[in-house]
C-alpha cells in the first residue's frame, strides 16, 4: 500500500477476442475476494508483481495534506451498460463508509469516518480527509465500484439482510 499508483493506459484499439474456458479449483479462503477482483471495477488494482496501478482511478494527486484530487477514468462501462463516473465512485465510497468494519482483515484498513467526497464533475472528485492518510490508495484496494443496479438490487447482501456487515 502506498501513496502513489502507476497509471495504466487503456488500450482502446485492442481487438483480442476472449476465447476458451478454464475450470478452476481454488480452495484459498480469499477466493470470494478474488472473485470480486475478477469481476468488479475498483479504484486501484495490482500488477503481476503486486504493485498498485490505477484502474477507475486514472490519476490522483494531493492538493494539500488533507485533500486528494482524483481523475476518474473515462470510457468505462459496467456489465449492465451503465457508464462509470465520479458518481459511481462516490456511491461506492459512501456505501463502504456505512460499515463499522468493512474489511475482513480489520479496522486498520478503515478510512476515517469523517472523510467525505466532493464531486467536481463527472470525471473528477475531491476526497477530503480530517487528517492526512498516506495509505488511502492502498486501502482502496479493498473498495469495489459496481453499477447503480448492484447497490439497488443486491448490495453486499443488503437486500436480504439489510446490511452487508456481520453475516459474510
Amino acid at each position: 500500500m502506498t501513496g502513489q499508483v502507476t497509471s495504466e493506459v487503456a488500450a482502446e484499439g485492442g481487438s483480442r477476442m476472449p476465447v476458451g474456458t478454464v475450470n478452476v479449483v481454488d480452495p484459498h479462503p480469499l477466493n470470494w475476494l478474488y472473485i470480486t477482483w475478477n469481476t468488479m471495477e475498483e479504484p486501484v488494482r495490482t500488477d503481476e508483481r503486486g504493485h498498485m496501478v490505477g484502474a477507475v482511478l486514472e490519476d490522483s494527486r494531493w492538493t494539500d495534506e488533507k485533500t486528494l484530487e482524483v481523475d476518474v477514468r473515462r470510457g468505462i462501462r459496467f456489465q449492465d451498460g451503465e457508464k462509470c463516473t465520479a458518481h459511481n465512485f462516490k456511491r461506492a465510497f459512501d456505501e463502504m463508509q456505512r460499515w463499522k468494519a468493512p474489511h475482513p482483515p480489520g479496522t486498520n484498513l478503515n478510512i476515517h469516518q469523517e472523510t467525505t467526497i466532493e464531486i467536481v464533475d463527472d470525471y473528477k472528485l475531491l476526497i477530503h480527509f480530517p487528517q492526512p492518510d498516506g495509505l488511502v490508495l492502498g486501502k482502496m484496494r479493498g473498495m469495489h465500484i459496481p453499477s447503480t443496479r448492484f447497490w439497488d438490487e443486491i448490495g453486499f447482501g443488503y437486500k436480504k439482510q439489510g446490511s452487508g456487515e456481520g453475516h459474510w
Binding site: V9, A10, T21, V25, R77
Partner: peptide
C-alpha cells in the same frame, strides 16, 4: 466491452468448481 482491452479478458469463460 471492458475498457482495458490490452489486459483482457482473454478467456470467454472461467468456471470455479
Amino acid at each position: 466491452d471492458h475498457w482495458n482491452k490490452e489486459r483482457g479478458p482473454r478467456l470467454e469463460k472461467v468456471v470455479f468448481h
